[in-house]
Computed example of a mutant assay.
Amino acid sequence: MSKMLVVFVMLFIALPVRAETPVIVILGDSISAAYGFEQAQGWAVILQDKLKQAQLPHHIVNESISGETSAGGLARLDKILSAHHPAYVLVELGANDGLRGLSPLAMKANLTEIIARSRKAGANAMLLGMKIPPNYGKAYIEKFYQVYPELAKELAVPLVPFILEHVALKPELMQADGLHPNARAQPFIADTIASYLFPLLKAETR
């Protein structure tokens, strides 16, 4: 082996190994898919900018589809996990289950399996809670909404109680259908999620 080659090999071994950029997958519906406006205005893109400002190395991959249910998200999950090997999965699903009057028990089972499979693949999960309009009846609404805190407690998973907390009751931040936030609402949604997510990410990078 030549002296030059020996020097090259020694330098190569001495070089620090660059860690792979951790990926955050968003598994959501129209609330996360920038329904009704440009993708670049969506909260996922804004959250990516906030990660950069906070000097956090994570890269966001948005796998959200308008109209998605918890069952649909579960059906797509294995392929998504295999493709991206995420460090985190932000689960923003359930609203369409509620709007279609589907079983909260089935929704809970789907979300439970999403969290279990994410963890099995080495990813942490975070639930992004949603609410549905009051015209669905008090009993159904309570059963629906309780799915999120129950899962958070039972599975010890972080929860954002309601990602439209500072948006839903402000007409100027909602689209005409009264269900979807508009482009002006997206920074507020990003701020809400960041307030729960970033402390976890910063604790991991210390």
Rank of each mutant, 00 (worst) to 15 (best):
H58Q: 11
A109E: 13
D97E: 00
A40D: 13
K108P: 03
K79L: 07
M174N: 09
T21N: 06
N135V: 01
A203Y: 11
A116E: 08
L90Q: 03
I115P: 11
P133G: 09
Y196I: 07
E63T: 08
Y88W: 15
E20V: 01
L15I: 09
I193G: 07
H166T: 07
I24Q: 08
L56M: 14
M107R: 01
E63H: 08
T69P: 05
A109Y: 05
S195T: 13
I114H: 00
R76F: 01
V45H: 05
S195Q: 15
Q175E: 13
S82A: 15
K131V: 07
V9M: 10
I13M: 06
G178S: 10
K3N: 13
M10T: 12
Q48K: 10
T205Q: 15
A156E: 15
L155M: 15
H84W: 09
E150I: 11
N182I: 13
M130T: 13
A87H: 14
Y148N: 03
L81R: 03
W43M: 04
A116P: 11
A33H: 07
H84K: 05
P149Q: 11
R18D: 00
P86G: 05
I46F: 08
N96K: 08
F144A: 05
Q39N: 08
A185N: 12
S30K: 04
P171S: 02
Q175S: 09
V157I: 12
A203T: 13
A183T: 01
I80F: 07
I13E: 01
E92L: 06
R206I: 10
Q48D: 04
E150Y: 10
N62G: 05
L56A: 02
G178Q: 11
T192M: 09
A14G: 01
P134S: 15
T192Y: 12
A106M: 09
M1N: 06
L169E: 14
A156S: 15
L200R: 14
A203D: 13
M174F: 14
K50R: 15
R117T: 01
G101T: 08
K108V: 01
L102M: 05
K138H: 09
Y88D: 09
L90A: 01
G178H: 14
S30P: 05
K50C: 04
L201I: 11
A183C: 01
E154H: 00
L169H: 14
L15Y: 07
M4S: 09
Y145V: 12
A190Y: 12
K202W: 09
I114M: 06
D29S: 08
V45G: 01
Q146C: 07
P86E: 00
E38M: 03
P104K: 04
H84C: 02
I65R: 05
M4D: 09
P16K: 10
P158A: 12
D177Q: 07
F37N: 02
P86N: 01
V157P: 12
I13S: 04
P171D: 06
V157L: 11
L173F: 15
L169P: 00
I31A: 07
